[in-house]
Write a protein that binds this DNA or RNA. Structure first.
Lengths: 145, 145
DNA sequence: AACTATTCCTTGTCCGGCTAACTTTCTTCC
DNA sequence: GGAAGAAAGTTAGCCGGACAAGGAATAGTT
């Protein structure tokens, strides 16, 4: 009753995800970032200052993880937090000027990650992989509810 | 420069993996287990007593995580550790009698996880998903070296 | 206006993943 | 045989992910 025998798809997802995250971590470590932090920065660079809860939604994480992650980014000088003028509960997070120095490098890292992930696949294989993942995501989303 | 725009496949992998792990965690929590621990137990049930390094290899993790995880399983009474009679460095890990009570339930949880993951897919879609994941795994393995 | 419910965020705790540094024990090679 | 190298585990520290619980502010209801 090995895991692979009981759930081949589950096991494959597990292994691919682990490899993928490991490689992402390696690429990001050269920038002094940890997996997940780059998603926060990318959201801020793209969409501008926003509340933590918006970042939570965009980066697929949860509020406590986001709060801690932002606190670390703040300490690193990449991010700032200011109270919202219109909502006393909310904090508006914004990317600092200093963070912009990372912007191109983070883009390169993600481009490289995508190249390592999909680079050896044909266009058809890439399409098939995207379609398969979309199906899985849909099924899993339905299951989560 | 959102993550989805730069690396659609990477982003899809990320999201599917997160959903999948979340659902696995939910199923396992009812058994008092955390994601990863069930892989250790399944390896022990299937292959019998073995060294920690063997478990590391089978469950796709690393030595420090395994050491901690096993210590927790030991404290929970699900696992035992004894020094190897032939290698003074190694510890042989084995599943306890008590752990056998979980065996069927863990199998059910994985079956349910696979059903939630693949249940709504046709046989062809399932095959395609497996093939796509295998390709991705191969590419990522190559990239990791 | 007052009470309730919801939203936003924080803190504490536990978990696995990862790196680095270390100890103990083989193995290998000269 | 002895020294150099490799292998098995451990500990400590960081990270994000998850859950529970709680404070503070807003929104909704009566």
């Amino acid at each position: 009753m090995s895991a692979a025998a009981v759930g081949p798809l589950s096991h494959a997802i597990f292994r691919v995800a682990r490899l993928h995250k490991s490689i992402a971590g390696r690429l990001l470590r050269e920038l002094g970032l940890h997996p997940g932090q780059e998603l926060v920065l990318m959201a801020l660079w793209t969409d501008g200052p926003q509340r933590q809860v918006d970042l939570v939604e965009k980066t697929d994480t949860d509020a406590p993880s986001m709060a801690r992650s932002i606190a670390r980014l703040e300490k690193a000088g990449l991010v700032e937090r200011h109270p919202s003028p219109t909502d006393g509960r909310a904090l508006i997070v914004s990317a600092t000027q200093a963070s912009l120095a990372l912007r191109a490098k983070v883009g390169d890292a993600w481009t490289e990650l995508e190249r390592l992930t999909a680079g050896t696949l044909s266009a058809e294989q890439r399409e098939a992989a995207l379609a398969a993942l979309a199906l899985l995501e849909e099924a899993l989303s339905r299951a989560e509810r």
